[in-house]
Nucleic acid binder design. Structure first.
Lengths: 246, 246
DNA sequence: CGAGCCCTTGAAACTCGTCAATGATCGTGG
DNA sequence: CCACGATCATTGACGAGTTTCAAGGGCTCG
């Protein structure tokens, strides 16, 4: 059942629209090879032209921008099952870096690969919705960094990660593997690593979160959601099924 | 020359790819009616299904999210010449509000309108690039809010507004009309209105910016760019022309 | 002329960043 | 097998940047 290389990507796309057997077949046949990267490796550099995009099979990657003073802002996570926005091909050059935050297994799609997939109307719809979800997440992150307290900010992000992993079957017993350092979280949330640490302990003391040796446990997901104003709606997991539309 | 309703939208799209006379004709014929909104009016509400998108002919609008405590985060500006991301049609429902920040004249495009325009390959490319630019801007905003000082943050945003207005011919003599209050800027930059005020005075005292009664003047745009680390690259104004690609 | 919105300014409180130092864990090579 | 260095988590003290509260002034519009 979960055998093919692209199975996790397929699992994800199926949350957006039901896929037929031929669609899945097309995904598998296009996703022929998996590339492995180590933590710290760069998958794509700014300035490069964009001739391929990635599907994350396993591990955590991210998009980030480096500032002149050396600090970095992570602008998006790429989690298992995530597929890059296919519209990236319309960028004349890349404006950010894609880096591996852990060991990462990624499938590479060329422009032609995607064209082929998009020729199937169902897959095309799924890919478009995938792009839209990434956009919604980006908006949510701006709200998060801009207007929430550090407590809400961190909790909210952990909820999001948890939910995104849950969708692709990587959560068991309120727990999942999250290979992020507190430094990574700091660069994401625009906080200092020290403050992420303190905030993490607040979450722990509140009995909401345990995060130790890459294992994230949400002891009471519902309570954490309430405490951090997390509404999973923006991940568009459920709503999609009802929606008609082209 | 600048007579048609859609001329400003066309001007903008031409920065992404050269348009033929027929393309422009198609834009004009589709953009038949202009709707006027007053400051404070809502153009679109969260929760609504998305059956139309807007092109801004005149005035400032924005996308924003309201938080439970009543604060708002503006997540995008819609300036004269701006066209909504056409991919919005793939969202099952809207996750944010679109509001008018000044008197706004907007053209409404239906799903069919856009399909018609996208049937022309050149226009389709221009619209895709338009979407990509909005994405780049969103990333830049996250960096701005996350990792820059208030001085850089405000200056950077003013640079962006200035540049975006320049592209559509609304800048003369280092000056343009910007109908934003300091409150609007605060909600955009995730600062308090008080601090925007103080920061604005810093910019003024530095001889870089004058902003009074909706008139923005950049006395030395180049110096302001240097001071605020503004690199207009992400607006993709120049690079687009060279790029081939589908 | 008053109401309302916007800009401005000051003072006090607080969140968060920086600096610095200590442990804990882990992989590696001697 | 242990020592070492590297990376990561943790903690305390202090200071800088920002928010909040409060109040006053200018402007426009009815």
């Amino acid at each position: 059942m979960m055998t093919g290389i692209a199975s996790r990507l397929i699992l994800r796309l199926e949350h957006y629209t039901p896929l037929g057997a031929e669609d899945k077949q097309a995904m598998e046949s296009v996703a022929s090879g998996v590339k492995r990267f180590d933590r710290g490796d760069t998958l794509a550099r700014p300035g490069e032209s964009i001739d391929r995009i990635f599907g994350i099979v396993d591990g955590f990657a991210c998009r980030y921008r480096l500032l002149p003073d050396g600090r970095r802002q992570i602008v998006a996570f790429m989690l298992p099952g995530d597929l890059c926005d296919t519209r990236s091909f319309h960028m004349p050059y890349r404006d950010h870096t894609i880096g591996a935050l852990s060991t990462v297994d990624a499938v590479v799609f060329t422009r032609d690969n995607i064209r082929e997939l998009e020729s199937r109307s169902t897959l095309s719809r799924a890919l478009n919705r995938n792009s839209v979800v990434h956009q919604c997440i980006a908006r949510e992150w701006l709200v998060n960094v801009g207007h929430r307290t550090s407590f809400e900010r961190l909790g909210h992000l952990l909820c999001e990660i948890f939910e995104r992993l849950r969708i692709v079957g990587l959560v068991r017993d309120h727990s999942c593997e999250v290979p992020l350092t507190q430094n990574d979280l700091a660069d994401t949330l625009a906080l200092s690593a020290v403050h992420v640490n303190r905030t993490m302990m607040e979450l722990r003391r509140a009995g909401l979160v345990t995060f130790h040796s890459q294992r994230l446990i949400l002891h009471d997901p519902e309570a954490l959601r309430r405490a951090t104003a997390f509404d999973p709606g923006y991940l568009l997991v459920e709503k999609m099924r009802d929606a008609q539309a082209a």
